[in-house]
């Protein structure tokens, strides 16, 4: 059978046409509506009066805008001063981009208090600022291994060291704590030594109950330097003592002590956090030498020493706070 070439050409041509994707619901490049379109709020914020994070509730900021544009939500604890922010550029704001589970950006954490919610649109001229509030009646539950939150005082296993003239104790003042009501405080003038004071948290006979994997375990502690501060003026020295031989006690001559220094960053509450596995390096990134088996074994951790040091030559009082010591898995603690 002889086939006319025109039929072949038509077949090829119509095959092409039929394969063309007809994508009428998308366009090329950024949206002109987003770049130049008018801004208005189609569906505004409407929050519940209270939220109980402890029972697993969360807050979603359901807002619909006329265009994709930069939006910012800032939640401020009226008592604690805790702050949680969200930002994005989506036109639809909902649980996918703003689920608030009760945490703050950093310390201090939220308390059971009234939280003020402010929503703004920085790139839109003359746009309104939405303000609302919600009462927190239950706090979010931490996931991790809490060593101490200082809420229940000290333990008989703890030991303390303080230079002469230094006052150190647990203070309970909800306005100043990083989380909860209480924190540990050093205060005093020491002109002859950098060492101000320390406390040693010793585990009971069962240890701290930490998992064995150092690769995904994080040590976390809230820290605030108040006086005799500055980038090179004060720091917290942490010792992590492991019971390598399992005899229930620590011997510096034969077992591993890992050291971490957390230096001053600013005058606010900060999260001092380090992955346990990173304790094998010093501050310069060099491997550290220990006297034990040299293995990072958090399950063998039996003592944590928290030591406050500050510049002896500054001639002023040294003061620092620590709070909420907790180990977390897979990621640093989220206040």
């Amino acid at each position: 059978m002889k086939i006319n070439p025109i039929y072949i050409l038509c077949f090829v041509f119509f095959s092409f046409i039929s394969c063309r994707k007809e994508d009428s619901n998308s366009f090329d490049g950024p949206s002109l509506n987003d770049l130049n379109g008018p801004f208005n709020i189609i569906s505004s914020l409407n929050l519940d009066e209270e939220v109980d994070f402890e029972s697993g509730e969360e807050i979603n900021f359901d807002v619909e805008l006329s265009k994709n544009t930069l939006w910012e939500i800032e939640i401020t604890g009226q008592t604690s001063g805790a702050i949680r922010t969200f930002s994005g550029t989506e036109r639809i704001i909902n649980s996918t981009n703003t689920a608030w589970l009760g945490g703050s950006n950093t310390f201090p954490s939220f308390q059971q208090e009234k939280a003020i919610v402010k929503m703004s649109f920085p790139n839109e001229e003359n746009s309104p600022i939405i303000i609302d509030s919600v009462n927190i009646i239950g706090l979010k539950q931490d996931k991790g291994y809490v060593i101490t939150d200082f809420e229940n005082g000290t333990d008989e296993n703890w030991s303390f060291f303080n230079q002469s003239g230094v006052n150190a104790s647990i203070n309970c003042n909800s306005d100043l704590s990083a989380k909860g009501s209480c924190f540990y405080k050093w205060e005093g003038t020491v002109s002859w030594d950098w060492a101000i004071g320390s406390f040693q948290i010793n585990a009971n006979e069962d240890g701290f109950g930490l998992p064995a994997n150092a690769g995904n375990l994080f040590f976390n502690m809230a820290t605030k330097f108040i006086s005799n501060t500055g980038p090179d003026n004060c720091f917290i020295l942490l010792w992590f003592d492991e019971d390598d031989n399992g005899d229930g006690s620590f011997n510096l001559e034969t077992e591993d002590r890992y050291i971490y220094e957390y230096w001053y960053e600013n005058d606010k509450w900060n999260l001092a956090s380090i992955k346990y596995d990173d304790l094998k390096y010093d501050g310069d990134g060099q491997p550290v030498e220990t006297n034990g088996n040299g293995l990072l074994e958090p399950s063998k951790l039996i003592g944590i020493n928290v030591f406050f040091l500050a510049n002896k030559d500054s001639g002023i009082k040294s003061e620092a706070l620590v709070d909420h010591i907790i180990f977390t898995e897979n990621e640093a603690y989220k206040p």
Binding site: D23, S24, N25, S26, F27, D28, G29, P30, S31, L32, N33, L35
Partner: peptide, 9 residues
């Protein structure tokens, strides 16, 4: 005409 809108449908 454009095969696909640019910046808009």
């Amino acid at each position: 005409q454009e095969s696909t809108g640019s910046g808009t449908l």
